[in-house]
């Protein structure tokens, strides 16, 4: 007739009904969004890192040169750089490489023999880096118009943009988290309101507040966790389905890396905790109104 004590107690709160479906669907939808936004935020963070990395730790030495004197000047400048503390490596950007940089503007048929291309040396810096002023003086002793460019003029705006990008990603995650909490709280309230008669009957037959709260909290926390797990899985599949970025661009794509992979597992747990708290609060409010 009855399938056992605990299972009978579990049946007191209906397993189906629109509020149960609402909780499941709301948790799934919000978890999907949370996982996807976390993946986008991870991508944004890596993009910001890439921007900063591309400008920090490197510098360029540029010196105009008369036709045909490039190699000798590059060698002289290289000797200065080799003797400078804070310079880790140096590499001359050759004529072909410079032509490739210019080709988007001038096409592939650049008459290199007619152009007076400067000597360009890309250097990587140690963490401390060189004394820029002193290095510039020494380079100008070799070539009076030599320029040491530590990319400082680009770093500030790129770092500001990267910082804003990270802030935007974090804000998006926070907003999704708050909306998830609000939606689950609304679902819990709607369910408690829809099941108000059950709560009344339980009180009338002698149920304690703790018993009633536990019944609803358990049901909704489990339901929210199940919905969030489904949503997280779909979110994870959606993230994996996003095409990888073109390797040539080096741009990081949408996705997780490192500890970021824990998001799809954390979201259902967070949803259950939020549903637990929201249902407890809603049950306490409802029980306050009945004797």
């Amino acid at each position: 007739m009855l399938s056992g004590g605990d299972q009978s107690v579990e049946r007191i709160v209906p397993r189906s009904g629109f509020t149960m479906t609402l909780t499941l669907a709301a948790a799934a939808a919000m978890a999907f969004l949370a996982v996807f936004v976390a993946a986008v935020a991870g991508g944004a963070d890596r993009l910001a890192d890439a921007w900063e990395d591309s400008l920090t730790g490197t510098a360029t030495v540029r010196a105009p040169v008369a036709l045909g004197d490039g190699d000798a000047l590059a060698q002289a400048l290289g000797q200065v750089l080799d003797q400078t503390p804070g310079i880790e490596t140096r590499r001359r950007i050759g004529t072909d490489e410079q032509a490739a940089l210019l080709s988007p503007w001038f096409g592939d048929e650049i008459p290199l023999d007619l152009l007076n291309l400067p000597v360009l040396i890309e250097v990587t810096l140690t963490d401390e880096g060189p004394d820029a002023e002193e290095l510039t003086d020494r380079l100008r002793a070799v070539s009076p118009e030599a320029v040491y460019d530590d990319h400082g003029q680009w770093q500030a705006p790129v770092q500001a943009a990267a910082s804003r990008l990270r802030l935007l990603a974090l804000t998006s995650l926070l907003v999704i988290g708050l909306i998830t909490a609000a939606v689950l709280a609304l679902a819990a309230n709607a369910s408690l309101a829809a099941n108000g008669r059950i709560i009344d009957v339980l009180r009338l037959v002698g149920a304690s507040d703790r018993f009633i709260t536990r019944l609803f909290v358990r049901r909704f926390a489990v339901r929210a966790a199940a919905g969030a797990a489904i949503g997280s899985l779909i979110g994870l599949l959606a993230v994996l389905a996003v095409p990888a970025p073109d390797a040539a661009t080096g741009a990081p794509g949408v996705g997780f890396s490192g500890a970021g992979w824990s998001w799809p597992f954390i979201v259902p747990v967070l949803a259950a905790i939020i549903a637990y708290g929201a249902t407890r609060a809603a049950a306490a409010r409802r029980l306050r109104d009945i004797s």
Binding site: V9, P14, V205, G206
Partner: peptide, 22 residues
Amino acid sequence: VDHLSVAENVLLPVMVSGGDVA
């Protein structure tokens, strides 16, 4: 409680008091 059977409704006071339903 309308979604519970008559038997379950009769047993409701046992359930809420933590008694042995079986």
